[in-house]
Design a binder for these strands. Sequence first.
DNA 1: CTGAAAGCGCTAACAT
DNA 2: ATGTTAGCGCTTTCAG
Lengths: 331, 331
Amino acid sequence: MAERNGKRPTIYDVAQEAGVATSTVSRALANPERVNARTREHVLTVAERLGYRTNPLARALPSGRTQTVALSVSDITNPHFFGVIRGAEQQTRAAGYTLILGDTEESPDLETSNIERLSGSVDGFVIAASRMSDEQIATLATSHRLTLLSRQVPGVPSVIVDHEDGTRQIIEHLASLGHTSVVYLAGPRRSWLASRRWHSIQASAARHGMTATRLGPFPPAVVGGAAAADATIGHGATAAIAHNDLLAIGMLRRLAARDVHVPRDLSVVGYDDIFGTDFCSPPLTTLAGHFEEAGRLAVDLLLGSRRGGPAPQRVLPSYLVVRESTGPALR
Amino acid sequence: MAERNGKRPTIYDVAQEAGVATSTVSRALANPERVNARTREHVLTVAERLGYRTNPLARALPSGRTQTVALSVSDITNPHFFGVIRGAEQQTRAAGYTLILGDTEESPDLETSNIERLSGSVDGFVIAASRMSDEQIATLATSHRLTLLSRQVPGVPSVIVDHEDGTRQIIEHLASLGHTSVVYLAGPRRSWLASRRWHSIQASAARHGMTATRLGPFPPAVVGGAAAADATIGHGATAAIAHNDLLAIGMLRRLAARDVHVPRDLSVVGYDDIFGTDFCSPPLTTLAGHFEEAGRLAVDLLLGSRRGGPAPQRVLPSYLVVRESTGPALR
DNA sequence: CTGAAAGCGCTAACAT
DNA sequence: ATGTTAGCGCTTTCAG
């Protein structure tokens, strides 16, 4: 074996063994069409025989291409992101890239520092549920390749699941059950989704002659559910839309503890259709979307993005999954 | 600003601006103690002013240290891994490293190809719930830095949650409820955990005069639960231990559909204490462990590992969380 | 189509 | 304590 004392063989070893220049090896590997078919084959065979593996770092340094993308999520323990992560990971791998994962724990500071730190070692960022301001994101987009997930900022590529039409579906569902008063248990103040959802709820509710009230914000986690449930009971509405399923599930538990029957006394709706929504009690009515697909698409947009073109803003369909947490208004 | 036409400043720019050699800049940045306090401060100031950011790739190439670790999980959609991932991500970041995530989708081939691919661009691997053979792992360990999570192989550093003592807790709990026959709904054939758990169940059951039967294997996911439930009913045991909570939850649903009451007709126990076990119906009795801690520890072992020393095999405690899916044996 | 050679940005001996 | 000088392994002009 022609490998230099225990170290991994380099293109230099391959070149020598194959009797060609290193540049030829490099081309045979990276731009197969720019080298004679015979030599290419020969080089590839030798490389194979030597057990040559290209060193991604060395390749990245001169070319600037790291073949790596970073995915930043706001809370890795939220099952909602499983789909996103899996989709992104699959697509990343399929494109021959590697996925770096960052959990920003709902903190915009951690988000920026993460990006700052990774900048230079990745080719781009997919930022899911960003907590940064529009301005921060727009600025970042001028110096970094990025695509947004569940967030839209003018001029920045993004993919979201249709919250507007989805919210319409929710409101119409509630209206058809005779509800005339609904509360929205809001998510984090910095959450773009939270403000959009509230916006859509107001608009749809108005069209159906319903009154809508926003309560909160609440932490978008199961623990936030107790306070959200209490606030809802205090308000007296017959229907509640929680910022996400985690919060809705937390509410369900508190409501049960306080003997408020769902859906008889109160209808509850969530967003995301996460793991568990089909076996909590009662099973949760929630707005579903194809988040795995969203993750894939976000990576696609990132890797396919050309500077200069208009930033694509993709909107994936959403659909209401009606389970047992919603029922007729009895007041 | 002294940055060369739009490109990021390099240590070369800093060196020139500060009137020192690049090596001094390099030292000031990486080995602060090996440079005069005054010059260090000066260099740092200049670097700051120029907006210098060290290029991780360029740093990695000559040194071989990428400041990156890879985490490989067998199924990213299994909530069990949330804790592991978050713990690993935190500890990785705390150590100034970056986390690369790989989902191997229960496939040993994907697992090896992933490692193969990443080898060279990471400093080490944390492999959770590996589906590779002991031999493969042992071989890999000779050429790569790695630590195992939820898996033990002689000579390879690992951290697991105590399945043996945990299984003893489960069996004693069932025995105290009067159960004399228990079935184990097995996980994947290549799962080390599955075989260890079965082993422990047999041993503990024998000590308590219980008969234990293994059924399966079943896919360790909710969808596997239906078949597992049917097999259990066919067998006639009064207690069932599922390979993991996903499977147990799937069983719960099928049992309810078939009008088998839990725990009156059958007691069900799971492993992992994942998200959802406290609100499924009935809430699931399951073996819990600190998986976030396990993730952190695995990264610690990896980064702290010295070649030559004995491979640490850490065992974290497990504890049985008794909920409502287990009750007295009525037959 | 292929080879020679100059880097990519940083580290690490080796000198001074 | 600091400067000089080779590289790390690969890509990429530029010649031939």
